[in-house]
Design a protein around this nucleic acid. Structure first.
Lengths: 158, 158
DNA sequence: TGGATATTGACAGCGTTCTGTCAATATGAC
DNA sequence: GTCATATTGACAGAACGCTGTCAATATCCA
């Protein structure tokens, strides 16, 4: 270990930020490997999950909002999932252009298999800490994210 | 709300995963906006921070390992930072090919300005929860990431 | 000392997300 | 009913991280 002359400002928040980056990267990497045999990626799996959760009632834009992503990011994934036959489009009575994204039977099957692969991993992870502590960690992350988003709106308002 | 027929398997771990994705995305977006006036992005800022922290003693591969990223991801960013005059390369006495990444005076200046922009935000975020709780949240995240990485090695071993 | 192995940087390609622009469609104000 | 505004999907381009391959360089073991 050398001396680190810059001493670039140590703050507890920074430790959270770095751990968030690491955990996020680890989750994406693990997810990619986990569902690769199903022809999925982490991103496609997530979108498929959102579509499944919506029960066929959401347009692409709604799915994107639910996931907190840009519309165009989700649009491309949905198009690929449709090309792979995992989702389809149903006419939207309320909007001629914004069709509803629905699961196909094949999509349901693939998503269920992904869930089955993930379940034991989720349980192993949860076993690392007690349930109360896990809940509090999630609340802490959400609270700090809330502050960050407050800062963001403050700035755009100024 | 429609019925959500897939009932896609609710688990406390999944709540952590989703919050991690959201927090990560919020941090990247905020960081991008914060350091944009300095000609930086979140990724370049992070790499610059790692180089500063290393005090000019690390090669690209070492920086990548420290950050938990692939060598090539960092290589590209470092090359861009060098093109922008924020970092340079110093000969490595121990390795003719793996030169050492060093901050330029301009890089130091830009990094210090980024730190100054970030500090009040970090403090506002930390004020959202008490210090002990923040530390425990970080430990919880690290513990669960540890389990995830254990699963990963178990699988590659089998 | 010599040869097998590991590390490193260069190069190329892919997947994901973002931003911006545009036309089609809905919505709301008047 | 009309017109301004907002939402939506299509298209294009940029930034980021990953993987794989290759040649140059270090390291380690016999």
């Amino acid at each position: 270990m050398t001396h680190a002359p810059a001493a670039p400002f140590d703050h507890p928040t920074n430790a959270l930020v770095l751990e968030t980056f690491r955990l996020n990267a680890a989750l994406i990497r693990f997810g990619d490997a986990l569902v690769k045999p199903l022809g999925l990626t982490s991103a496609r799996w997530q979108v498929l999950g959102s579509v499944a959760h919506g029960g066929g009632a959401f347009s692409v834009a709604r799915v994107a909002d639910n996931m907190g992503l840009a519309r165009q990011s989700v649009q491309r994934i949905v198009d690929e999932l449709a090309a792979a036959g995992l989702v389809g489009f149903a006419p939207n009575p309320a909007h001629k252009r914004a069709k509803l994204v629905v699961m196909t039977p094949r999509g349901e099957r693939v998503f269920r298999r992904a869930s089955d692969l993930w379940r034991p991993v989720a349980e192993a992870m949860a076993a690392a800490v007690d349930a109360r502590r896990l809940r509090r960690a999630i609340d802490t992350m959400a609270a700090m994210r809330g502050r960050l988003e407050d800062e963001r709106s403050d700035r755009s308002a100024s």
